[in-house]
Simulated assay, not measured.
Amino acid sequence: MTLALAWRAQRAQPPQVRAPCAPDAAAIAASAVDCLLLELETWPKPGLVSHIDRGSHDDMDAETLRVSAETIGPYFAALADGGAGGCAMERLRVIGLEAEAAMFAATSGINTHRGAIFGLGLLCAAAGARSNGRVDPALSLGATVTRLWGSSILVGPVLLHSHGMRARRRFGAGGARAEAANGFPSVYQVGLTALRRGALIAADDAEAARVEACFALIAAVEDTNLLHRGGLDGLLYARRVARQFLGQGGVGAPGWRERAGAIHQRFVARRLSPGGSADLLAMTLFVDAHERSCP
Rank of each mutant, 00 (worst) to 15 (best):
M1R: 13
A4D: 11
A4I: 08
L5S: 15
Q10I: 03
Q13H: 12
P14K: 04
P14M: 01
P14D: 06
V17A: 11
R18M: 02
P20Y: 02
P20I: 07
P20C: 03
A29I: 10
A30H: 11
V33D: 11
L38G: 06
E39R: 09
T42E: 01
K45W: 06
K45E: 07
G47C: 06
S50E: 08
S50T: 12
S50H: 00
D53E: 00
S56L: 03
S56N: 00
H57N: 03
D58I: 02
D59Y: 01
A62L: 02
T64A: 02
T64S: 12
I72L: 07
G73T: 09
P74E: 02
F76L: 07
F76E: 03
D81G: 15
D81I: 10
G85C: 06
G85D: 10
A88T: 07
A88L: 09
M89H: 13
R91E: 14
R93I: 01
I95C: 13
L97D: 08
E98F: 00
E100S: 06
E100R: 10
A105K: 12
S108R: 15
I110T: 11
N111V: 00
R114H: 10
F118K: 14
F118L: 11
G119L: 11
L123T: 10
L123N: 09
A127Y: 03
A127G: 12
G128Q: 05
G128C: 07
A129P: 09
S131N: 05
N132S: 15
V135R: 06
V135C: 14
A138C: 03
L139A: 07
S140M: 09
L141T: 09
T146I: 01
R147E: 14
L148R: 05
S152K: 08
I153D: 05
G156Y: 00
P157L: 03
V158F: 03
S162A: 05
S162W: 04
H163S: 15
R166C: 11
R168K: 13
R169T: 10
R169L: 14
R169M: 12
R170S: 12
F171I: 04
G172L: 01
G174A: 13
G174E: 13
R177M: 02
G183L: 07
S186L: 14
Y188K: 08
V190E: 13
V190H: 13
L195A: 06
L195F: 08
L200C: 14
I201H: 09
A203N: 06
A203Y: 09
A203T: 13
D205K: 02
D205M: 07
E207Y: 03
A208H: 04
R210P: 08
E212F: 06
A213Q: 07
C214R: 13
F215V: 04
A216R: 05
I218V: 14
A220W: 00
E222A: 12
D223V: 04
D223S: 09
H228Q: 14
H228R: 05
H228L: 00
R229T: 04
L235V: 03
L236W: 01
R240I: 00
L246S: 04
G247V: 05
V251F: 08
R257C: 13
E258N: 04
R259P: 06
R259Y: 03
A260T: 09
A262D: 10
I263N: 09
Q265H: 08
R266K: 11
R271C: 01
S273G: 11
P274F: 01
G275P: 05
M283E: 15
T284G: 11
F286C: 10
V287I: 11
E291A: 15
R292G: 11
S293M: 11
S293A: 15
